[in-house]
Amino acid sequence: MDSITPSGGRRSEDSATRGEVTDVDLLKRAWCNEKAAPEILHFEAALVQRAKEQIQLLEETVEEFTADRSDDLLVSLYQMDLDRSLFLLRSYLRIRIQKIEKYMLHISKTSLWDRLSEQEQRFAKKCIDIMEKHLEQSVLSRLPYGYQSMLKQSISSEEDDMVPEPQLDTFVFCKTKNDVGAFQLDDTGEEIVDLVADDLYVLRYNSIKGLVEAGRVDLV
């Protein structure tokens, strides 16, 4: 296998500073961030694609090894590496699906929709259809007129007030990769924190959202 140079635009710079960063490291970061962030993050399409290719390649190698009856030890070690990578990939995809199931209506109505992969969008659409049908048949059709919407409490609600939304002002644990400097936590400029490299902070997700998306802090 060749050594892997991550091609994900903004991430390539810090991979250069930290020396060797494999796709597994990147996937691990993506997994942790996704797991810790309350809302759904951008789908790491290129990274997932690369991980899939490498997994497939290793699967073939392991098969070859098994067929050759080569060293059992070698086969079992490669198999472990394979299992670990598979777990990481599955877990990443799964946590996204959980979020989609939970917030599908909210995601479908906002710009978050663009963060999903094609398959995820298809999944979300189907999921919404099924949920709509189910609620319609089991409950909504039996309610009096004016209370039959899946999105609104009653017809008098001005906005959709029955859509579960991720709670963005929750607190998250995050680790800084490099110095961010004085960072403003709110709009009024009253709360300023000096973010130093490689330190652990508990901050409101809303205020560090930008830093997470830019890859400057990692959620843990």
Partner: peptide, 22 residues
């Protein structure tokens, strides 16, 4: 408390205190 700094706290310690703290 709008921000908490936990210099040198380890992963397992973070994990234990996370639900309560958040």
């Amino acid at each position: 408390t709008h921000a908490v700094k936990l210099k040198n706290l380890s992963a397992m310690e973070v994990n234990i205190v996370r639900p309560f703290m958040v």
